[in-house]
Design a protein around this nucleic acid. Sequence first.
DNA 1: TCTCCTTTGAAGGTG
DNA 2: CACCTTCAAAGGAGA
Length: 390
Amino acid sequence: MPQLSSGGGDDLGANDEMIAFKDEGEQEEKIPENAFTERDLADLKSSLVNESEINQSPSAAAVRRGQQGEQRGYAEKHREHLDGVSKQQDGGMYKAAGYPTYPFLMLPDAYLPNSSVSPSSNKVSVVQQSHGMHPLTSLLPYSNEHFSPSPPHLPLDIDMSQKTGVHRHQSQDLSGYYSLSSGGVGQIAPSMSWQSQSVYPGLSPCGFRQTYSSNLPGASSYSRFPHSLMLGPSGMHPTGIPHPAIVPPTGKQEHEQYDRGMYVKPQVEAKREKEPKKPVIKKPLNAFMLYMKEMRAKVIAECTLKESAAINQILGRRWHALSREEQAKYYELARKERQLHMQLYPTWSARDNYEAGLSGVAGEKSKADWGKKKRRKREKQQDSSADNSL
DNA sequence: TCTCCTTTGAAGGTG
DNA sequence: CACCTTCAAAGGAGA
């Protein structure tokens, strides 16, 4: 869109994120009091990317591993960077300049997958900060849904990457920076409260012309995010949790992504029963996904919708309606996510999950399924383009 | 039971 | 380099 094009080539590969989302002619809202220009955000994003690129060597895992030590200083570096950001953010989440390090930065074992070595190896040590917790912490997708009585400190040099065998240097001193969110990223704070009422005048907060009660019992209280992230007593170091980036051997994800490749010869099958199932390392969430994760419940509460497709549409619109500062927070958070992910899985590639169903035990079936899916999508796109041409 | 839907962004692949 | 494809989350709907 024109706004960004004037920005001069600074992009995150997400040039369209500031496209004014005009749907149903609903938003002329340009956040007038906003001191930022489109360019500002673009610059900010650009700087974020640049920093990422500086921190990550373009080349290989070996190089990345070498950076792990150096990234210890990342917190400081990041703070420097954030200084620039937070100066421009009023009342934003970064206002908590007092945080010595990024709260969830580099929690070493956060991503540890299941391992045959230790059944609890995918647990993460977490320190709950009951006071003054960085609000952004709540955005962490690495939530806690499943606690385990496993000891807080786990062997960190487990060969977590079964395929890589990389020995990682793990910095335990960072292990306290993850905090938990119950059911997702939950609590961003009042500063992130809805703009939608003003953003979509004449429309429901859902952005739909639908009738519903805005006095939903849960809605107002939800906006204060009463539930918590603060699990456990203050300052306590609870037990580890599995990392959401790791798909456990049971459950839907695994069902879809792992068991997709379950068809194998009986012998192999028997063998696999012995072996721990190889967890699928999920992609780190991008900014929008983080946003969705946080806001989904709220939209559900406000709109009494449950269908994800509809909710996501609303969230997409709200995303575009967000101020640059607010979006920037999520971009920053997503960047952290990627960095953390990269640190923990230096050799992981997004492509690993392209073929998640056919990796590991990779049966012919899963391979076929994957191809089928791919084909289906392609056909669909061709269909739609054909329709457009008519 | 499985896949689709729907969104944005990141990353990999291809020409 | 531009473009295309896939995958992240989520849960209801429909095949």
